[in-house]
Design a protein around this nucleic acid. Structure first.
Length: 379
RNA sequence: GGGUAGGUAGUCAAGUGGCCAACGACAACAGACUGUAAAUCUGUCCUCUUCGGAGUUCGAUGGUUCGAAUCCAUCCCUGCCCA
């Protein structure tokens, strides 16, 4: 059993895009990769079987905060970790709860020690410290675990962003110390990724990248983006961070994004992505297809009996028609949620596979530039 | 035939003299959603609009009144009960 390895296979002549291979004790992941979000131990509405077969997911996310509250650590530990609990033997990455510091801002207090959360389920109070979050992620047993950070909102004042970043850095030290003082629980190796913060301020981002790089972690993450800033700013900061983070380690851009965001950021050197968009927006009737974006709820699809997307290498995407999926969505049939989610995820995974193929064959940039236009089209 | 309850916008359904173009729900139509408190949320939803308003509505017709979806008369229709 060994720590995560990252092998760079190819770069790209006209961009920072690269193709690589991550090796974990639960198998290999070819990059660039998109990781479906399975917050509470489930990629919402999608069975593990479809995740493997139709979606071809290689690695998925879980969330520390949600799994800690429910089912709780006893259940997870009793199961032998999240992989066994949910029946998924490919890699898993857990987010630390840092994002919940941001999204549950109404029910938490940030202190030097950590964050006092109020459970969104029953209102009970819990302290999340860097040490506690490491312990929880040890028990959940993800292959990649994330440092506990604060994700500041957009917009943030410079002074706040700076203060927040430094807190995240101090927490990062504590995360690594505690992580290194604790052991893998289930016989395979866990890897801790630090997270760059600094809001939209380039000097803060630079400082944060340097701090994070100093940890010489198996991989590095860029956090605090796609929280409302303009797209160009996302790209610019992403580019700057990729420049300042180690070349030989995978770069993970947290929470991004739309298909075109992903292509643009692959072009800037990102290797790993995750986002709720394919699943959440799918459940809310938004489909990403090889020809553009569809709101399947719209009347225009009522009698469109053509496949959801025959350009996608997923049986479900050509087996079911737009008209049928629209009917399911309008009727609130639960199958509609699953079909939409499976399709969107299959689309995202195919997108990153194609990006990889174009990086390897050397024409990524021209392909990307064409795709970015097509994918944003509103059908 | 007699009695009785009722007929309100696509549907259900409030309103029973002015604060009513008319509560609410549903349906319909459109939008939002980026490390998931989201199978959620928002908007529109009689017609026209230069978004300030303007014009037609509450089974039909006639009437009372400064003013009616709301009161009165007649008629039409529906449910239930009795013959």
């Amino acid at each position: 059993m060994a720590a995560l390895q990252f092998e760079l296979e190819a770069g790209c002549p006209h961009s920072a895009a690269r193709a690589g291979k991550i090796t974990t004790d639960h198998g290999e992941v070819l990059t660039p990769i998109f990781m479906p979000v399975g917050t509470a131990g489930s990629v919402k509405t999608v069975p593990q079987e479809q995740l493997e077969q139709e979606v071809q997911a290689r690695i998925i996310l879980g969330n520390t905060y949600h799994l800690y509250l429910r089912p709780g650590l006893e259940v997870l530990e009793g199961a032998g970790g999240l992989h066994r609990f949910m029946g998924w033997d490919r890699p898993i990455l857990t987010d630390s709860g840092g994002y919940q510091v941001f999204s549950l801002s109404g029910t938490r207090k940030i202190r030097e020690e950590g964050v006092i959360f109020q459970s969104h389920i029953d209102g009970s109070r819990h302290l999340f410290s860097p040490e506690k979050v490491m312990d929880i992620q040890r028990i959940i047993g993800a292959d990649i675990i994330m440092a506990f950070d604060e994700c500041p909102p957009y917009p943030s004042e410079y002074a706040y962003a700076e203060k927040s970043m430094h807190l995240t850095h101090r927490w990062l030290d504590r995360c690594f110390t505690h992580f290194n003082n604790t052991e893998d629980k289930y016989g395979y190796t866990q890897n801790l990724f630090p997270i760059v913060q600094g809001s939209v301020f380039s000097d803060l981002r630079k400082e944060s990248c340097a701090y994070v790089s100093g940890k010489e972690a198996a991989g590095n993450a860029i956090g605090g983006l796609s929280v409302g800033e303009p797209e160009q700013q996302l790209y610019d900061i992403c580019e700057a961070c990729c420049t300042d983070l180690p070349v030989q380690k995978p770069r993970y851009l947290m929470g991004v994004g739309t298909p075109w965001n992903i292509l643009e950021c692959i072009g800037r050197g990102v290797d790993m992505f995750d986002c709720v968009m394919p699943t959440r927006n799918g459940r809310n009737a938004m489909l990403f297809t090889s020809k553009g974006v569809i709101n399947i709820d719209n009347k225009k699809w009522e009698k469109d009996y053509s496949p959801i997307d025959d350009g996608i290498d997923s049986a479900w995407s050509h087996y079911y028609s737009k008209a049928y999926l629209r009917h399911l969505v309008k009727s609130k049939e639960v199958l509609g949620l699953t079909i939409a989610s499976v399709h969107n995820l299959a689309f995202y995974l195919q997108l990153v596979r194609e990006a990889r193929a174009h990086i390897l064959q050397g024409d990524f940039v021209s392909w990307k530039n064409e795709q970015v236009g097509i994918l944003q089209t509103r059908l």
